[in-house]
Design a protein around this nucleic acid. Structure first.
Lengths: 155, 155
DNA sequence: TAGCGATTGGGCAAATTGTCCACCAATACA
DNA sequence: TGTATTGGTGGACAATTTGCCCAATCGCTA
């Protein structure tokens, strides 16, 4: 939870140029290689870095349409079975339970607006879903990022 | 845009075990090393894989609260200047322009509910923002993922 | 049938990794 | 005050991996 300047620089460096290895990092940051390795191990152990996997762009796969779908669910059986079934839909990228008028919020993608209808129909058909309300993301002026947050979190 | 079985297996493998290199991938998938390299280059060139950077968990940095904030903005000057100023707030992780009653949707994080108020105040203070409406994410039964989508997109 | 893109299997030098070690400085603690 | 503990440094080593080259083969299509 405590992040210092070196951690921030390390994360920033790896975010901007993921291909460079530990050795190159240590050269760029003017520290010993062992230090970089230790820092990365520590960040991973603390759960700050949860993975290094490839980041996929759905639009490049033809899924140009992103939408946020708010669900109202039948409260009786709880939200877990609903979430489990939503997870079976590939186009559902994430699901949250939320406060406010709705019960759940899903991010979904689709190949087109017509295809979005199909995806929404899949969601509506999920047992326990009473009603849905969708908004389409027209543009994404700020794509998902965490670097500014990391910088702000430094001690 | 055309993804085949091998691409899917490669992305899956790298997502699950990002540390393994190209050579190890080729061994696991029973293909030549050059093939794996060529596939990765192609996926990157096509924009399917947009990065390999470390994935950061905001909660591990103390940002336990996630919220979605819908904004109504003064339409006159457009949304670009608003988005630019929102981008200056580290706790704003992403911004979309949307259809429906609201004009923009932001994902924000904060250290606590009280801290969320501070972040929302920062957003309200942005020039052009007329009104905000927030929902807090209580739980995330399906965290962000793209693997099922990748599998579904295969030819 | 000829051409073309993709894949294969191999080879090579250079770079990187994983894993040790001893040593030093700062800090916390009894 | 003396003593662990922690984090960093700099170096060493073998083993592995990378980047880059090549010629041959395969499947498909014009």
């Amino acid at each position: 939870m405590t992040i210092d300047q070196l951690d921030v620089m390390l994360i920033t460096l790896l975010t901007e140029e993921p291909r460079i290895g530990v050795l190159e990092c240590s050269r760029r940051l003017n520290v010993a290689r062992g230090t970089v390795q230790a820092r990365l191990d520590r960040l991973a152990a603390r759960g700050v870095i949860v993975g290094h996997g490839p980041q996929i762009e759905p639009a490049a796969l033809g899924y140009d349409v992103t939408a946020f779908v708010t669900l109202q669910i039948r409260q009786v059986s709880g939200h877990v079975p609903v979430a489990d079934r939503l997870a079976l839909v590939p186009e559902v990228l994430e699901v949250h339970t939320i406060t406010g008028g709705g019960d759940m919020l899903c991010r979904v993608v689709a190949r087109s607006n017509a295809d979005l209808q199909r995806v929404i129909d899949l969601i509506v058909d999920v047992e326990g879903v009473v009603r849905t309300s969708s908004v389409i993301a027209l543009d994404t002026p700020v794509p998902y990022r965490t670097l500014p947050l990391v910088a702000a979190a430094r001690t």
